[in-house]
Amino acid sequence: MLIPLVLVGAALFSLGLIGFVTRRNLIIIFLCTELMFQGIVLNLAAFGRYPLSGPPSLDGQAFAIFLLAIAAAEAALGLALVVLLYRYRGTLDANAYKVLKDS
């Protein structure tokens, strides 16, 4: 039972990673991070329920809860920033923001 769940979790995580890296729309990028969070939540729960050794415990789920908190905070801030950037530059295109590159 553990294997398929963990496989799915891993798949979700890598899909999120691919999305994060390839997509150019800022919002979608953030969405992909949320996707990654989903993968992780699934994994945590799976390992909580079917631990490799010892009785099933609630730690996985507890941790997932905290993860949710973080995801929420992150989403809030992220989106606020996205809105700000959009207002500032007028575009959501990730390529537009190259300030880090020095001359």
Partner: peptide
């Protein structure tokens, strides 16, 4: 929008 269709 252009940045949606174009993957990097």
């Amino acid at each position: 929008a252009p940045y949606d269709t174009e993957a990097r």
